[in-house]
Design a protein around this nucleic acid. Structure first.
Lengths: 125, 125
DNA sequence: TACACATCTGAATACTTGTTCATATGTTCA
DNA sequence: TGAACATATGAACAAGTATTCAGATGTGTA
C-alpha cells in the first residue's frame, strides 16, 4: 500500500486524479490479474518468427524435427527448444515412430487467430 | 549458401534428409518471410501483461494516460512508453483535449483475437 | 551388446525488452 | 510571460529470451 502510494508520487498526476469515476468503473470491469497474465504468456508464444514459421509449416503437414530444421535453416537443437515451448502451450502434439518424432497441430484456434492478425496488418498498411 | 550448408552439418540429419518431398511441398506453401516476420511483430505486442491490461481497460472506456497509470499502479512514463508501442501497431488512437490526451481502441480484431486466445487457455486446462 | 541416429536438454552467450529516472515538449491559465 | 501540469522521450539498467555448443537420452539394428 505505502509502496504503491510512493510509486504514484512519481507520476504526473499525484494530487488530482482526473477521472476517479472512470477508473473505478473500469477497474471493476477488468478480468482477474491472473487471466491477463496467462493471456500475455499465451500470445508471447506467437511473438517469435521461428515459432510462427513452425506453426505455418504444421498447418500444411505434420513434420519431424529434422525436416523442420532443414526447412527453417536452423539447427535441430534450436527447433527442438522451440517445439518444447509450443508443446508447453499445448499448441502442438507429437507421435513417435521409431527414432523419429512427428509434430502436428493440437489446436483449432491458432489458424483463425493468425488470420485475424494478418487481416489487421493488411488493413493498417 | 556455404554458410547454410555448414550450419546444417551440425544438425542430426546432415546426410539423409528424411522427407525431402514433404519439405519441398511445405516450403512452396509457406507465406513470404516478411509476412511471417510482421505477424510475429504484431503478436509480440500482445505478449506483455501491461499492454494486455491497457487494451482490456480501453475495451471498456477511453482513458487518459494519467488514469491508466493510476489504474495499473505504474508510472505515467511506463504507460506512455507502452502506449507508443500500441500506437505504432495501430491498435490505439488518441485525441487531445487541452493538456489531457485520451486514448481509445483503433481496431476491431483485437477483442475477438483475445477471445479466441482466452478460449484456448480455458480448453487446455 | 555395440553402434548409428533422431531427438532432447543444460549451460553459455548475445540480443531484446520493460521499467525507471531525469528531462523535454506542449498546453492552460493567471 | 511564467508557473503548473499532462504527456512524451532518451538513456540506463535489470530481467528475459533465442540460438548455439556439447553432451545426454532413447530407439532401432547388426
Amino acid at each position: 500500500m505505502a509502496e504503491q502510494e510512493q510509486r504514484l508520487e512519481n507520476t504526473c498526476c499525484d494530487v488530482t486524479i482526473i477521472h476517479e469515476d472512470v477508473i473505478e468503473r473500469v477497474r471493476s470491469g477488468m478480468p482477474a490479474e491472473e487471466e491477463l497474465f496467462d493471456l500475455a504468456e499465451f500470445f508471447k508464444v506467437f511473438g517469435d518468427t521461428t515459432r510462427i514459421r513452425i506453426l505455418y509449416a504444421l498447418f500444411q503437414s505434420e513434420m519431424c524435427v529434422c525436416d523442420l530444421a532443414h526447412l527453417m535453416g536452423l539447427t535441430q537443437s534450436a527447433i527442438s527448444h522451440q517445439l518444447r515451448v509450443l508443446k508447453q502451450a499445448k499448441l502442438v502434439q507429437f507421435r513417435r515412430e521409431g527414432r523419429v518424432v512427428y509434430y502436428s497441430l493440437a489446436d483449432d484456434h491458432v489458424k483463425s487467430i493468425f488470420d485475424q492478425g494478418y487481416q489487421h496488418i493488411q488493413e493498417r498498411n
